[in-house]
Amino acid sequence: MINPVPKHLRKNKQQRYKLLMVALAVILLISMTLAVMIGPVPIPPLRVWQIALSQVFPNVTGDWTQAQVQIVWLIRFPRVLLAFFVGAGLSVVGVTMQALVRNPLADPFILGVSSGASVGAVLVIVFGVFSFFGVYAISVGAFLGALLAFVVVFFLARRQGRLRSTRLILVGVAVSYLFEAITSFLAIKAGSGEATRRVLFWLLGGLSGTKWTDLILPVLALLVGLGYLLVQTRSLNALLIGEETARTLGTDTDSFRKQLFLVISLLTGVIVAVSGVIGFVGLMIPHSVRFLVGSDHQRVLPVSLLLGGIFLIWADVLARTLVAPEELPIGIITALFGAPFFIWLMQGKEGGR
């Protein structure tokens, strides 16, 4: 018989979780402030928020210059916010994928989902596919590409109704290479000029040139996806334990998997459409969060969202300051952190066998 967790321990655990969320919220506020301040033209922290408030409340006035308004409100603030939402979205996708395939190595980059989304986006850029969707064409193309890649990986990795970790990773890497090859071929077909430059953007990932309008779809997709996942935390917990357990607890696993396919593909597609392919965030953040708060998705999802957003804000700061005035692709920064983490995680799994 399994003894229930004592009430005082549950209370202490809940208090620690609340303190963690408050701490992350404070760190997020500080990170956003510093990220807007840092740049070729430094802006004092108080002025950052005075300018931001003046754009929301016209009666707020001060002695800042119009150039500072342009830098803070039109250049840095939307970029920092997009970094947060992209990092948050990739982390949420990573949490969901790891529950769906029951593998801590699952990540939209490693399993080829990001590469599939990139192919869909590049098809729109180079050949004008889905152009009838107007400004949303790239997001639609990326969503369909991500969905296709995820379905291919999932079904190729299944053997006799079971998913094996090693097979899943190998199939994911193979599919990722396949879609990257297709993307490279499309880049060659694009020739030289603006189309080629945009294709390279999808391959490397970056947040430069972010406008306020770029935030609309990522924010909406994240709100919808996160809202759905928070409602389904019980089913996610059951699925992480095992398919038989999930069925025993009343979860229609086949239907639930299809819904998760759509959520993962939607979030990945929208994120890739605005930021390009950024790897390893969905691997590192969820795995780290489970060390902090356990495996209950009711806690893992919100903490992953905040921590992933904070991480990518600072990754973007490094990308634009390490070799200033040049700017590094943000995917290089996340890979510098993510590749060693992936190797460490692989060694841990091998050692635990």
Rank of each mutant, 00 (worst) to 15 (best):
Q70P: 00
R159C: 06
V95M: 11
P78Q: 01
A157P: 00
V263M: 11
P302S: 07
I71D: 00
E244F: 04
S192E: 13
L29H: 05
R76K: 14
V152S: 07
V36S: 08
F143C: 06
A88E: 02
L230I: 08
L220H: 04
G225R: 04
S235R: 13
V129E: 09
K211G: 01
E194T: 09
S288M: 15
I169A: 01
F133P: 05
P4Q: 13
G242W: 07
Q347I: 09
I313Y: 07
W64C: 13
V113W: 00
F84A: 02
S255P: 02
M346H: 08
T33H: 09
A35T: 03
A67S: 13
P286K: 14
L260Y: 08
G120F: 06
M97G: 02
V231E: 04
M21G: 07
V122D: 03
E180A: 14
S31L: 08
G134S: 11
G225Y: 03
A149P: 01
A238K: 06
V289R: 01
S165H: 08
M1S: 13
L318T: 06
V231P: 01
H297R: 07
R197K: 14
R47C: 02
L249Y: 11
S304L: 00
Q232H: 07
A121C: 11
Q50I: 05
F201T: 00
P108M: 10
F201S: 00
Q66W: 03
